[in-house]
């Protein structure tokens, strides 16, 4: 692969979101005085950039901190350190109307389609609630807009006054997408948005997300454990392991020429029809984030680990157009 092409592909122009050294820690409390005895570093020094109209895929195994990262960006988790710049504004310490406007511009689609919709609100109420709360237009226009949005995500008009339990998972996810879109956001976090759906329906929802992005130009942070889905929708992929980004690059670079041993193992482990040959299966399991290993967090499972990996934490460095944190890649 031409390295120039790769170099170009990791450059992000028109930054929408600039995450610098983000840390989200959860305190671990013990004893009757609930003293803080330590921290779970769910997100530990992550720096990422998401461009306008771009989709960043965030992959990793359960417990690696990908959901916490997504929630931290929207201010749903209190961050411990680092900075988040959204369209040039530092999100830290925002108050009042500025914060309110930023809130509108960042939306989320959750994993479980049924539990993320209020069971006691009709579909129309769910979809228009945000618009009405933010007084984006008057009530009648909101309802009209809600209807047209629902049509856009592929639901018929008779869905309006029905309740979430009357819909299948795929339809509920479409409603959630319509609800997120109603705020005219610039950025949507899709947290495992298609993981709960059957393959045939999953494909429909992925296509819908791609279509809507082409039309409205919003950016996505697409969080998923499923590399193959991510490789379809994303422009760039960031691979997380134990709270840290271990590799970042364009989709084709990550999928075809992964550099980090963890990314390689992750791609190898995906069962794909037609794939031949023996897999490299990594041993062991993700260590507990309560007591992460010294040095490179991946070293206990890494097939290539050397002495340096046990003592020194690798820095994220630029290598043939990708960012990778591994001592053994030069």
């Amino acid at each position: 692969m031409a390295s120039e092409q790769r170099k170009q592909s990791t450059m992000v122009e028109n930054k929408l979101l600039d995450i610098r050294n983000l840390e989200t820690w959860f305190p671990v409390k013990r004893g009757i005085l609930s003293r803080t005895v330590g921290h779970v570093k769910a997100v530990d020094g992550v720096s990422l950039v998401i461009g306008k109209g771009e989709t960043l895929g965030l992959v990793g195994e359960s417990g690696c901190g990908k959901t916490t990262l997504g929630r931290s960006l929207l201010g749903l988790e209190r961050i411990h350190g680092g900075e988040i710049f959204f369209d040039g504004t530092n999100l830290h310490g925002l108050t009042g109307n500025v914060l309110r406007d930023v809130r509108r511009r960042m939306q989320m689609v959750f994993q479980d389609p049924l539990s993320s919709l209020n069971p006691r609100m009709s579909v129309l109420d769910s979809v228009t609630e945000g618009m009405k709360a933010f007084q984006l237009s008057n009530a009648r226009e909101c309802d009209e807009k809600g209807l047209s949005l629902l049509k856009e995500v592929g639901l018929s008009g008779d869905a309006l006054f029905r309740y979430p339990h009357e819909f299948s998972g795929g339809q509920c996810q479409r409603i959630s997408i319509a609800r997120a879109l109603s705020m005219r956001p610039d950025f949507i976090v899709c947290d495992e948005a298609v993981s709960a759906l059957d393959v045939s329906v999953q494909a429909q929802v992925v296509n819908l997300l791609i279509d809507l992005q082409e039309k409205y130009g919003q950016s996505y942070l697409f969080i998923s454990h499923d590399l193959s889905v991510v490789s379809h929708i994303a422009d760039h992929i960031a691979v997380m392991y134990l709270g840290k980004v271990v590799e970042y690059g364009s989709v084709s670079a990550i999928i075809h020429t992964p550099l980090h041993p963890y990314t390689q193992a992750l791609i190898d482990a995906v069962p794909v029809p037609g794939k031949q040959g023996k897999k490299r299966v990594i041993k062991g399991e993700t260590p507990s984030p309560m007591s992460p290993p010294s040095g490179c967090p991946f070293h206990p499972r890494c097939p290539e680990a050397e002495t340096i990996c046990k003592s020194q934490v690798p820095e994220l460095k630029s290598l043939s157009g990708c960012l990778v944190s591994c001592h053994l890649r030069h």
């Binding site: 393959v199 999953q202 429909q204 193959s228 379809h232 999928i255 794909v272």
Partner: peptide, 25 residues
């Protein structure tokens, strides 16, 4: 046939629509 086609394949390319089966079960 539809089931096999709608499986997202690794590295098929970005932004490509997945062939899907319309409707639902």
């Amino acid at each position: 046939e539809g089931l096999l086609k709608s499986i997202p394949s690794l590295g098929a390319g970005t932004g490509k629509r997945l062939p899907s089966i319309r409707g639902q079960v």
